[in-house]
Amino acid sequence: SHFELRVGTITLHFDNISEELAEELEKLAKNGVHADEIRRWWEEWLK
């Protein structure tokens, strides 16, 4: 499923992401983690 995450002024787009993972990314964003860090985390997870 597709997921969009708003982090400050940036909107990150994720394809084929589980609800659980989407929730984890939302938690990171709410805790003030920068969009670049979240994207890096996601790319690492995909490997």
Rank of each mutant, 00 (worst) to 15 (best):
residue 29 A to L: 04
residue 3 F to R: 01
residue 17 I to G: 01
residue 11 T to Y: 06
residue 10 I to G: 03
residue 37 E to P: 03
residue 2 H to G: 09
residue 20 E to T: 11
residue 11 T to A: 03
residue 47 K to Q: 13
residue 43 E to T: 14
residue 23 E to D: 10
residue 36 D to F: 09
residue 34 H to F: 09
residue 17 I to C: 03
residue 33 V to H: 11
residue 3 F to E: 01
residue 10 I to F: 03
residue 15 D to M: 11
residue 30 K to N: 11
residue 7 V to A: 03
residue 13 H to K: 09
residue 29 A to F: 06
residue 45 W to V: 07
residue 7 V to M: 06
residue 13 H to Q: 07
residue 42 W to I: 07
residue 19 E to P: 14
residue 9 T to M: 10
residue 5 L to Y: 02
residue 46 L to Y: 09
residue 43 E to V: 14
residue 36 D to T: 09
residue 43 E to I: 15
residue 37 E to K: 08
residue 15 D to C: 12
residue 27 K to T: 11
residue 2 H to F: 06
residue 15 D to A: 09
residue 40 R to K: 11
residue 11 T to H: 04
residue 34 H to L: 10
residue 43 E to N: 14
residue 44 E to G: 07
residue 21 L to A: 09
residue 6 R to M: 10
residue 41 W to M: 11
residue 22 A to Q: 15
residue 28 L to Q: 08
residue 33 V to S: 11
residue 24 E to A: 11
residue 41 W to V: 14
residue 25 L to R: 00
residue 14 F to T: 00
residue 10 I to H: 05
residue 6 R to D: 04
residue 37 E to H: 09
residue 10 I to M: 06
residue 42 W to R: 02
residue 6 R to H: 14
residue 30 K to C: 06
residue 11 T to C: 04
residue 27 K to A: 13
residue 2 H to A: 07
residue 11 T to K: 03
residue 23 E to S: 13
residue 26 E to F: 14
residue 27 K to P: 00
residue 32 G to M: 08
residue 13 H to E: 05
residue 22 A to S: 06
residue 22 A to G: 05
residue 24 E to V: 11
residue 24 E to Y: 14
residue 20 E to W: 09
residue 24 E to M: 11
residue 14 F to V: 02
residue 2 H to V: 04
residue 26 E to I: 15
residue 5 L to V: 07
residue 26 E to V: 14
residue 12 L to H: 01
residue 13 H to S: 08
residue 22 A to R: 13
residue 12 L to K: 00
residue 44 E to T: 13
residue 27 K to R: 11
residue 43 E to Q: 15
residue 46 L to D: 05
residue 32 G to T: 06
residue 15 D to Y: 15
residue 20 E to M: 06
residue 9 T to K: 08
residue 40 R to A: 12
residue 24 E to D: 08
residue 9 T to L: 12
residue 40 R to W: 08
residue 15 D to I: 11
residue 24 E to T: 13
residue 40 R to E: 07
residue 16 N to I: 04
residue 44 E to S: 14
residue 30 K to L: 12
residue 5 L to E: 00
residue 36 D to W: 08
residue 2 H to W: 10
residue 47 K to F: 12
residue 4 E to W: 08
residue 42 W to H: 09
residue 29 A to S: 05
residue 4 E to V: 06
residue 12 L to V: 03
residue 31 N to W: 12
residue 42 W to P: 01
residue 7 V to T: 03
residue 36 D to A: 11
residue 3 F to L: 09
residue 11 T to D: 02
residue 25 L to D: 00
residue 41 W to I: 12
residue 47 K to R: 14
residue 35 A to N: 03
residue 23 E to H: 15
residue 23 E to F: 14
residue 42 W to Y: 14
residue 22 A to E: 08
residue 35 A to F: 07
residue 45 W to M: 07
residue 19 E to Q: 14
residue 14 F to K: 00
residue 4 E to Y: 06
residue 46 L to H: 09
residue 27 K to Q: 12
residue 16 N to P: 04
residue 34 H to A: 13
residue 26 E to S: 13
residue 30 K to G: 07
residue 28 L to F: 12
residue 36 D to V: 10
residue 37 E to W: 12
residue 38 I to R: 01
residue 10 I to K: 03
residue 11 T to Q: 02
residue 37 E to L: 10
residue 44 E to W: 15
residue 28 L to Y: 06
residue 25 L to Q: 00
residue 12 L to P: 00
residue 16 N to L: 05
residue 7 V to N: 01
residue 19 E to T: 13
residue 46 L to C: 10
residue 39 R to H: 06
residue 41 W to S: 05
residue 4 E to K: 02
residue 2 H to K: 05
residue 6 R to P: 03
residue 15 D to H: 15
residue 35 A to G: 05
residue 14 F to H: 00
residue 16 N to R: 04
residue 6 R to K: 15
residue 15 D to V: 10
residue 45 W to Y: 13
residue 39 R to G: 05
residue 9 T to P: 11
residue 5 L to G: 01
residue 28 L to C: 04
residue 16 N to D: 07
residue 6 R to C: 05
residue 33 V to R: 12
residue 3 F to K: 02
residue 26 E to M: 15
residue 5 L to H: 00
residue 10 I to W: 02
residue 45 W to T: 06
